[in-house]
Design a protein around this nucleic acid. Structure first.
Length: 751
DNA sequence: CTCATTAACGTTTTT
DNA sequence: CGTTAATGAG
């Protein structure tokens, strides 16, 4: 351990050995943050400053937590982290809440609902309240409620502050939604953060016990914590004041889900005695990569002043790809990976391809597949969001938590057993009328007006559930899942279907089964169904990386946070994609931080890429390269062919000047041919007509016609007026609304 | 009640 | 474009 401490630089050492009192570690990208956290925990345990169960470490992902635990064990030996609470806010507090659920009127086996479950309930509630979804979308309502919860605004206070019609309605939905959750003995993700606060407020003894117990509190990625997380960590740390937060304001990328950057910026106001460590030496990236990243982030006004430096080698220049469309962009990425594998003997797992939105993965997947490169996509259609998985999870939830009727009704007819919508409605109605639970009705169907056919189906279902419930109290999660699959014949049914889709589902169920097996094998102390279920509810597919085969990583920049790769491609660097919302200046800085995060993931080689055209909503749209590309340090960026960017830029400006004049000479007269400016047509063909040549004599534009504009996107012509140079069109654009354009400059493309 | 076809909808980003 | 929810025929 002592020799290991020697491997830290002075500032890292200070961060590790400053054990008592508030501590803020500002950890620049690649500055060995994970190492510092793991060493700090190891140091606390090794020096006997506390026992592992007196430490609470909160991370951003389960994967990060798991890695840290492993690293500590490799430092201190197997079993050394026993009792240590390390995990996400969500999983740690879910665990805490299970221990005290009855104090806040929940059952300890409460279900955890994900965003989809929440949205479904919100939709139902809105229907019940007679709220038209075209006025406010369920999505919007969900995000408003979630935002409120993130800020620890409960329904009562939300109602007080609701001033307009919409927020009044949302407040009704909010109240009702929470009632539904409670009725189902379920919590959503946000509840896992705010229920502990309520628990602590109403039961100071519970808070007290945890304050005593957790002498040391560590929070990673503090820049991305929200109000609720802030409050609860402050509560927990109040007694010992040994709170250590680690973060980097330059990497704050979750404000959209309520993350509050002032938590980290204001840490010293909350804890005036706080020690501050700044980790500014980067051990990850080449000097070139860092130079580019620093140049970009410098454009943000709101940031703590700091400079990240490195003693690493200069490395290769950053390469910028320009492609015609996203398919060719993907092709370039795939070919580059293939070449690097051949020329440098690199493995698939050394490459990562990033994008702004999940939808962009498709073209990349196609290209990688075409070139026989194994890849793994994170996010997108998450494993846990697939129908078959959600169905099986719903079964498990209901087995564990009989109050969870949302899950019950999801699976009552899965696989189809003759209990259709009509029957389900009937059961719901009977239950509601008699103030009984739906499962009670299902269990005693004879007492109600139910057809014999349905009774038999309900009995089958009931016996199945009771059998599995019985099992779940004795056997491991794996056994229960296996039995569930056997009894429902889900696997056989899919095999019989034998379509490609059924086969994928079959594979997914098998995969789920092996997840259950892994869990049961690796958690001998508690491999119960309910433990497994909690694990499942809070995992993302990031947590289940296939490490057996070397694969190229495809993910959004958001999921890339905290990771690093030898070779990184950042794709889709176009306006309105990355940054996604260039008009919104408040979001722009966050987009830039996101770009910064992307850049700083790269260790050796960095490729940036944009396409001039891109299909979106099934339509080919013209793209403009991202403004962020103008912020690069151009002295170290080259094009595909190896030309330095600043050299190319000089040529380009010359050429574009020439192009502009030639446009005036040729294209314009051809468009406005009646104009006195008309000059004889030259024979010289233009490779890239600015205006559709077919429209030469007539501008081809008509009222009602759909047109495309470079900046504004697609729109419909509302009116045309004037002639010649003064000819104008009033166009309604889908994205930006009504605009009046001078046709001479607008370059409208008829569709 | 089930399955198939059709219409509508949507893209941020995730625990 | 691709996916999911809603509708109608069997």
């Amino acid at each position: 351990m002592n020799t290991l401490l020697d491997k830290l630089n002075p500032e890292q050492k200070k961060a590790v050995t400053t054990t008592h009192g508030p501590l803020m570690i500002i950890a620049g990208a690649g500055s060995g943050k994970t190492r510092v956290i793991t060493y700090r925990i190891a140091y606390l345990i090794h020096r006997n400053l506390c026992s592992p169960e007196q430490i609470l470490a909160l991370t951003f992902t389960n994967k990060a937590a798991q890695e840290m635990r492993e690293r500590i064990e490799s430092l201190l030996g197997e079993g050394s982290t026993r009792g240590l609470w390390i995990g996400t806010f969500h999983s740690n507090f879910a665990r805490l809440l299970r221990n005290h659920a009855s104090k806040i009127d929940f059952d300890s086996n409460f279900s955890i609902y994900d965003a989809d479950d929440s949205k479904k309930i919100i939709k139902e509630v809105m229907a019940e309240l007679g709220l038209a979804t075209d006025l406010i979308s369920p999505n919007a309502v969900h995000s408003m409620i979630s935002q409120a919860k993130n800020k620890f605004v409960l329904p009562a206070r939300f109602a007080e502050t609701a001033s307009d019609f919409v927020s009044e309605k949302v407040s009704e939905v909010y109240l009702k939604y929470d009632e539904v959750l409670r009725k189902n003995n379920a919590m959503d993700f946000d509840d896992l953060l705010i229920k502990p606060i309520q628990l602590f407020n109403y039961h100071p003894d519970v808070l007290n016990a945890y304050q005593e117990r957790f002498q040391f509190l560590m929070i990673d990625e503090y820049q991305d914590t929200n109000r609720a997380q802030y409050v609860v960590s402050k509560q927990m740390a109040a007694r010992h004041q040994n709170i250590c937060v680690v973060g980097d304001d330059a990497q704050s990328i979750y404000s959209w889900r309520g993350a509050d950057i002032t938590n980290i910026l204001g840490f010293r106001k909350d804890y005036p005695s706080a020690t501050v460590c700044r980790l500014q030496q980067n051990y990850r990236s080449t000097r070139t990569i860092l130079q580019v990243a620093n140049a970009v982030i410098r454009n943000n006004k709101n940031q703590l002043e700091k400079t990240i430096f490195t003693e690493n080698e200069v490395g290769d220049p950053v390469v910028l790809f320009e492609s015609q469309d996203e398919r060719r962009e993907a092709e370039k990425v795939a070919l580059t990976i293939r070449d690097l594998k051949l020329s440098r003997g690199m493995g698939n797992d050394q490459f990562a391809v990033f994008y702004r939105t999940n939808a962009q993965s498709r073209a990349l997947e196609d290209a990688l597949r075409y070139h026989g490169l194994a890849y793994q996509v994170f996010g997108s259609v998450s494993f846990y969001k697939r129908k078959e998985i959600k169905d099986i999870v719903a079964y498990l939830r209901f087995i564990v938590n009989q109050l969870d009727e949302e899950s019950l009704f999801r699976i009552l007819n899965v696989p189809t057993r003759g209990i259709g919508d009509v029957s389900i409605k009937k059961i719901k109605a009977i239950a509601e009328e008699g103030h009984r639970s739906a499962f009670e009705i299902i269990s005693q169907p004879l007492q109600h007006d139910i057809s014999p056919r349905l009774i038999s189906a309900l009995n089958d279902f009931r016996f199945l559930i009771e059998h599995l419930q019985d099992m779940s109290s004795k056997e491991s999660a794996y056994e229960v899942v296996a039995e569930l699959l056997r009894k429902t014949r889900m696997l056989e049914l899919l095999k019989e279907e034998n379509t490609t889709e059924a086969n994928t589902r079959y594979d997914n169920l098998q995969e789920f089964l092996s997840l259950a097996r892994d869990f049961s094998d690796h958690n001998p102390e508690d491999n119960s169904l309910s433990a497994f279920l909690q694990n499942v509810s809070l995992s993302t597919d990031q947590d289940n990386v296939d490490e057996n085969e070397s694969k190229v990583t495809l993910m959004t920049v958001h999921s890339a946070k905290g990771l690093e790769f030898p070779v990184v491609f950042v794709t889709g660097l176009e306006e309105k994609l990355f940054p996604l919302n260039p008009e919104d200046s408040s979001e722009l800085e966050e987009e830039r931080r996101l770009f910064y995060v992307a850049l700083t993931r790269a260790e050796k080689k960095l490729y940036l890429s944009y396409a001039k055209n891109r299909y979106r909503f099934g339509q080919l749209l013209v793209s403009i390269k991202s403004r962020f590309l103008d912020e690069l340090d151009e002295s170290v960026v080259v094009t595909e062919s190896g030309v330095k960017l600043w050299e190319k830029r000089e040529k380009e400006t010359e050429r574009s000047r020439y192009d502009y004049s030639s446009y005036q000479d040729e294209a314009q007269p051809s468009v406005f041919s009646k104009s006195w400016r008309s000059k004889p047509k030259t024979a010289k063909p233009k490779s890239k007509p600015v205006v559709n040549a077919n429209d030469a004599m007539d501008d081809g534009l008509r009222i009602g016609m759909k047109v495309q504009h470079k900046l504004f996107g697609t729109g419909k012509i509302l009116a045309l007026q004037g002639s010649g140079d003064a000819r104008k069109a009033k166009v309604f654009f889908e994205r930006v609304g009504e605009k009046t354009l001078v046709l001479k400059f607008a370059n409208l493309l008829p569709l």
